[in-house]
Design a binder for these strands. Structure first.
Length: 440
RNA sequence: GUCCCGUUCGUCUAGCGGUUAGGACUCAGGAUUUUCAUUCCUGCAACAGGGGUUCGAUUCCCCUACGGGACGCCA
């Protein structure tokens, strides 16, 4: 605690990691990184009706997935431990006693109330400017069951953890006058505030809720989004690097980010643009990195690529990289490289049959393919072009017919690459297989 | 109802008194391609309304409308 910037993300573990919370965490993290300060994770588990320990895992997993690490908090500790409010009861009790002693707290109906000063509160907000609000009613700080309330613990912890900037959702702006009252009663200057705009649902009224599609961080992980892409998109909801830039590495974002530049108005979440970002990141992934992530995902789909030659696996995957819009398509896009009983698109086959004599094209292709010494991309293409002009049949007719026999699909990676990666034996076997089945 | 915050293409945004109001996503058309995807062109599309201030307002002020949020012994 050296006088530098100290920010915190203080979620209540609910079992979901909402995309809006993630962005709040992200903005705090960015600001800490930008200013060389500390980012603290504090768990506000004061509501025991809702809080469960396993819910914490969802939260921490989501944060780690997005690459948002914390300097102090659960699992890493820190000078202000404990970082769970459920473990700080003595601290709160002591402060409540203090408030009672100075005449700012009193009991009523078994609960403890804070006595407001009634003076207008000045909220210094880096995003909204100065906001003035007045609290008129005393409010509960300790419930009749002895549990402290959010407003109280929030302020005490921010004070004790020497938080310099409170960056949180705008839904808290109206509460902030309660908090400044409390800071005042403790004789402490409130931190600077920064109330960031809310994320509204894509369609219809109100803010995004956990039931809206695309609202949960864990859904993106499940659907194999690239976390860098999600993070980059989130940065742009309420903030802009300007100069018409959108996709930029996190280091650059950290350098450019400043909390005072955050927009005032709410943003609507756009899944289409999110998907676009994901595609951009996917295509720009280096070969090694792309293969590494792909192998992992395929493994989860029950495709163990370890039994194949490493070069083959990589070649097959890379063939598909430029075609993928999302890694969630990976299994369907690549399975025929790794499974003999790959699925076949019956509808696509019907369409091809209606246009082409598939059997004849396959037999003709097979003859010329068998005559090939090598099956690299170039020689396959040459052979096919020759075949096409010799028989006066468009090359597409061969390509589409053979593609289906080899992959069970009408779309996929470049045809010549596909043939050369699968290799002579597999190509021949699948051609025979298909021709045989057609005869029956 | 009371209080607080906001308002540039459908969406995310740039703009901070004088601009043909820029970019991105989406959508539409075209080029390339064996398919799909990519890539590349082109196009559609915005300053909520009304008053001020000013030589001049998208930019500053006020009002209205609309949107959002808060008004719990939830956080």
């Amino acid at each position: 605690m050296d006088g530098g910037v100290r920010v915190r993300f203080a979620p209540s573990p609910t079992g979901f990691f909402h995309i809006g919370s993630a962005r709040t965490a992200l903005f705090n993290w960015l600001y800490a990184k930008h200013s060389g300060g500390k980012f603290i994770l504090r768990i506000e588990d004061t509501d025991d009706e809702r809080d469960r320990s396993e819910f914490l895992d969802v939260l921490m997993r989501g944060m780690r997935w997005l690459g948002i690490d914390w300097d102090e908090g659960p699992t890493v500790g820190g000078p202000c431990a404990p970082y769970f409010q459920s473990q700080r009861k003595e601290i709160y009790d002591e402060r409540v006693e203090f408030l009672k002693k100075i005449g700012r707290a009193y009991e009523k109906d078994g609960a403890i109330y804070f006595k407001v000063s009634g003076e207008p509160q000045l909220i210094r907000d880096l995003i909204r400017g100065d906001v003035v609000r007045r609290e008129e009613k005393d409010f509960v700080i300790v419930r009749s069951n002895g549990k402290p309330v959010f407003h109280l613990v929030n302020v005490i912890d921010d004070m004790l953890m020497r938080i310099t900037h409170v960056i949180r959702g705008e839904d808290h702006l109206s509460n902030t006058s309660k908090h400044t009252e409390l800071f005042g009663a403790f004789g402490v200057k409130p931190p600077l505030f920064a109330h960031i705009p809310l994320i509204l649902k894509a369609h219809g009224p109100g803010k995004m809720s956990k039931r809206d599609s695309g609202a949960l961080v864990e859904d993106y992980e499940r659907d194999h989004f690239l976390p860098e892409a999600v993070r980059n998109y989130l940065c742009l909801l309420g903030w802009s690097p300007k100069e018409d830039r959108e996709i930029l590495p996190i280091g650059e974002i950290i350098r450019l980010f400043d909390i005072a530049d955050v927009n005032k108005n709410n943003a609507r979440f756009d899944e289409k643009k999110m998907a676009f970002f994901n595609g951009e990141y996917l295509r720009s992934l280096g070969a090694d990195e792309f293969c590494r992530r792909s192998v992992e995902i395929l493994g989860a789909c029950g495709i163990d690529v370890a039994k194949f030659d490493g070069a083959y696996v990589c070649a097959a995957l890379l063939l598909c990289q430029e075609k993928l819009r999302s890694l969630s398509e990976l299994e369907n896009f690549t399975e025929y490289f790794f499974r003999e009983n790959f699925s076949r698109d019956a509808q696509a086959l019907e369409k091809l049959r209606a246009k082409y004599d598939i059997g004849a094209r396959l037999r003709e292709f097979k003859v010329s393919f068998e005559a090939l010494d090598t099956v690299d991309e170039k020689s396959v293409e040459e052979a096919l072009r020759k075949l096409s002009s010799a028989n006066g049949i468009p090359s597409g007719e061969y390509i589409h017919s053979v593609r289906f026999a080899l992959s069970g699909r009408s779309v996929g990676p470049g045809f010549f690459g596909l043939v050369s990666v699968l290799g002579r034996d597999t190509v021949l076997a699948r051609l025979d297989n298909f021709i045989g089945a057609e005869k029956m």
